[in-house]
Amino acid sequence: MTGELTTTTPVARGVEAPAAAPGRPGGARSRGARRLPPSLVVGAALVGFVALVGLVSLFWTPYALDDTGTGERLAGPSAAHWGGTDRLGRDLLSQLMTGAGNALIVAAASMLVAGVLGVAVGVLAGATRRWVDVTLLSGVDLLIAFPTLLLAMLIVTVRGASLSSAIWAIGISGSAVIARVTRVNVARVLREDYVTAAHASGTGWWGTVLRHVVPNVWPTLLVQLMLLGGGAVLAEASLSYLGLGAPPPNASWGRLLQEAQSTMLVQPWGAILPGVAIVVAVLGLNLLGDGIRERTDPNLRGDR
């Protein structure tokens, strides 16, 4: 809940640790093996909703972000302003919609950074010489122990507060988990007999990795990336709440919340709605991750 930002990293989630997926009724597996897990459906719906709002906000918002309108400040929800207005009279709903786009950009970009970096390191560690493996893994372990928030603060100290600083911090931090997961799975798959056989029959090393390792690893990676995306939205919100995220023209839920905090006794919606938006996005990504795991992991027991 503190978000991956304040926890060190989501190491444990789903990798080796207990996955507390939402319960399925016992016996549902046998009767409805083809039925999609509820968490997948709900998660996809929530994420789809946030993504749609974010996309729409690129082309249209009810009001322009800097439109102070008739000047009615700190107004509650009304027909004209569904979410009310902020202390400058700007429309809250428009800002929330733009915030959705911002959150999705951060989530997608840090998933990309973490995915590319993590998979590269993981494949290299899992499939090459032992000393490379040991060196890379100790680096990964150190990175896992290094809290995302602290990494972000270091990067912001060096590069200044910006959208890309946040993305790099979250992405690099998340890559450690991705690397760990990839490394474990690559090493496991490469030991399988049929892979050895493929290798022996003359398939090149990269061919082997592409043909056998990638299809085996991607469901696990997808799950981890979704959870990472949830963590990224939380982390970016925390950073921008602290004033270390994207600076003003960008609308970020965390900064909206921070700005509304001082006036929340007059207009509580400004402090409530951005929080709700964050929860919807993060819950959606987490559920989507859990859902994909339930769908793809044959070992997951139905009664959990």
Binding site: T2, P22, L234, S238, A271, G275, I278, V279
Partner: peptide, 15 residues
């Protein structure tokens, strides 16, 4: 707890 994991800590404080 599933919901709680998705809630940012600072929002809890603000609420």
């Amino acid at each position: 707890s599933q919901l709680g994991v998705a809630v940012p800590v600072f929002w809890v404080g603000v609420l």
